[in-house]
């Protein structure tokens, strides 16, 4: 199955990527190839196999105590901020 150009543009938008026309075309090919591979997998009969959400055989991994531990120092929290104002991260305005 070949992805439509619109489908690719939708994914690009969701991922907030700004791509050139050449990149859109290249990704359309590559993403379509990936999907085709999954189509092969879909041919396997999975009628009697319950869906799985995890590939590791673990369950009920929880923190038993509800105790508080130290957070990072504020300077470290903000250390990687591309932009900051006082003690906040500053980001471009987002319109609802």
């Amino acid at each position: 199955m070949k992805l439509s150009r619109e489908e690719v543009l939708h994914i690009v938008l969701l991922a907030r990527l700004g791509l050139t026309e050449t990149e859109v075309n290249r990704l359309r090919e590559q993403l379509s190839n990936i999907l085709e591979n999954f189509e092969v997998l879909q041919q396997v009969d999975t009628t009697d196999i319950p869906p799985t959400a995890q590939s590791i055989p673990l369950q009920n991994v929880m923190r038993r105590d509800d105790e508080v531990a130290c957070s990072l120092p504020q300077s470290q929290i903000l250390a990687n901020a591309p932009q900051r104002k006082e003690n906040f991260f500053r980001v471009r305005a987002v319109l609802e």
């Binding site: 929290i77 104002k85 006082e86 906040f88 991260f89 500053r90 980001v91 471009r92 305005a93 987002v94």
Partner: peptide, 9 residues
Amino acid sequence: GESYSLVDV
């Protein structure tokens, strides 16, 4: 000025 948002995590 340009509007912006401040983030408190």
